[in-house]
């Protein structure tokens, strides 16, 4: 029995330990103050930038597709071809690595090496990889293609491996019980379970690769990023606006069509 009248009630706090709670709160506040204080802001430069910002916004009404069309077309072609090839090649390499990186199907030494490859690929930004590949293979879309393929491996293999680790073991076990070989087991017991999501992830990666292809041009790996970089450097905001709009439209198109395909597959 509890004493009822006048008993106070307070919501139980998220972090039970009082000292830890306050340490986190104070820590966060101190960090924020320090971070904001160390931020150097050049207000004159920003005031100067305001008209430019307005000019940039005005550049969208209407954007200028015409005067740099040659560059835009070249960049777009490079970006699109890079996207397709790198996605296909990336997936082709990712599937075996993904299977190898799933603890429940691969022996440990394959598991460890595949996980190693994934970790390396995931740790670095595409841009950093692109810098290295440009240094190795020269400027141009080939370096971009290799960069995006490499990045695709880290992304797709990891998610595929996690998917395989999450499968329903009953189905896989049933196939194994029929006396199937390892390959048959993968084909019948595992592939049907992960295929829809693999297709979804591949389409998603296609979308990401296109967006990234617009970035790595900045460090010389080809694609529409180079065009954009030039336009912005020359303060040609109306051409830059055109490029940005093209990117947005293509990404939107890719997103809608991939969700349509995913709907069909699942």
């Amino acid at each position: 029995m509890i004493a009822i009248a006048g008993q106070r009630w307070r919501r139980p706090p998220l972090i039970a330990d009082v000292r830890l709670r306050w340490a986190l709160i104070v820590g966060a506040l101190v960090y924020l103050t320090l971070a904001l204080a160390s931020l150097e802001v050049n207000w004159n430069r920003i005031a100067e930038g305001l008209p430019r910002a307005l000019r940039f916004i005005a550049a969208f009404f209407p954007p200028d597709f015409v005067s740099r069309w040659g560059d835009i077309y070249e960049g777009l072609l490079e970006s699109l071809t890079m996207t397709v090839t790198s996605t296909v090649v990336g997936i082709a390499i990712s599937v075996p690595i993904g299977i190898g990186a799933a603890r429940n199907v691969a022996p440990w030494w394959i598991y460890v090496s595949c996980r190693g490859i994934i970790a390396i690929s995931r740790s670095f930004q595409e841009v950093i990889i692109a810098i290295l590949f440009v240094a190795l293979f020269g400027f141009g879309p080939l370096a971009g293609f290799l960069t995006l393929s490499f990045a695709t491996i880290g992304f797709l293999s990891k998610l595929l491996a996690e998917d395989i680790e999450d499968i329903d073991p009953g189905q896989a076990e049933a196939i194994r019980a029929t006396g199937a070989s390892w390959l048959q087991w993968i084909n019948y017991g595992i592939q049907p379970q992960v295929m829809p999501r693999l297709i979804g992830l591949s389409l998603y990666r296609l979308d990401i690769n296109f967006r990234e292809s617009a970035v790595i041009g900045i460090v010389g790996a080809g694609g529409i990023g180079a065009t954009l970089n030039t336009a912005i450097d020359r303060y040609e905001f109306d051409s830059a606006a055109a490029v940005l709009l093209i990117i947005i439209v293509i990404v939107m198109f890719a997103e809608y069509s991939s969700s349509w395909i995913r709907g069909k597959v699942q």
Partner: peptide, 11 residues
């Protein structure tokens, strides 16, 4: 919440 409400809740 007002104390009467809390009382009622306990009750």
């Amino acid at each position: 919440f007002p104390q009467p409400a809390v009382d009622a809740a306990y009750q």
